[in-house]
Amino acid sequence: MTDASSSTSEQVGYTKPRSQWWDVWDQFKTHKGAVMGAAFFIAVLIFVYVGPYIWTLDAQYIDIRARNQGPSLAHPMGADQLGRDMLARIMAGGRTSIAVGLTAMLLSLVVGTFVGVLAGYFRRVDGLLMRLTDLFLALPLLPLLLVIIMLFRDPLRATFGPEQGIFILIVFVIGITSWMQTARIVRGDVLALKEREFVLAARSIGTPPHRMILRHVLPNVLSPIMVSATLGIATAIITESALSFLGLGFPSDFPTWGRLLFDGTDWLQRNPERVIWPGLAISLTVLSVNYIGDGLRDALDPRIRGR
């Protein structure tokens, strides 16, 4: 493949065929919401990853005199009940929340889509996979988490260190307990798609199942997957806060957006900035991912792209 392409590019007067990804990019660029969403998302990433180099206060440093202070020059977003700087905590929290949100969402999406497509496409495994989905839907989440934490926390901590270990554990836990809805939705769509004429046409020319799934089925179930993805990020960020609240997540002095929002809730009347900032951060991040998803979906749909 590489040989062939390098030799063709040497031919004079031949313009390399545009890859379809360029078309996708062109279409994506015209989607105003998507561009704004992407820009905002990148801004959030810069804020949480580069921000700490500019705003150098430690998120865990306690300055007890600044306790419960409102916004000021020293603490633009105020300080919490122990006098920790909220701006630094939002930045530190964002790093964890975005990382957890994205990876857990991806994990649940991959598992969900995989199970859904297999179940919908191959009737033989449908029953088994869907009963497995029923099982996971029925499992009581909290005891399951307690068991997982009990069994795997110490080995993971020993192998990857305290922070990495917990991160892997949390992403895994959220991922494997939230893929079921995606799987059911994808399966439903695949069941309907499978009976459509173009699938019949593709099959009649002898398309093998893996190409069938990748080229014909998957692109057509993209929109529910995109919705699941955006909702999944929000769910993962909130679930993470529930986990650390129960003592199953990150150590208590480790800020995350969901946890900041939870801790701030009681302070709603006295220090509203304590809930406004983390609440806004979660909402706007999810919103921006939603618009990126919208744009991607449109860009990947050849029917729209052609217009």
Binding site: Q60, I62, Q81, R84, L246, G247, S252, D253, D263
Partner: peptide, 13 residues
């Protein structure tokens, strides 16, 4: 310690 907002604040201090 056990999970409890006050205990976690105490821990941090």
């Amino acid at each position: 310690t056990s999970t409890n907002a006050v205990r976690q604040d105490t821990q941090a201090l």
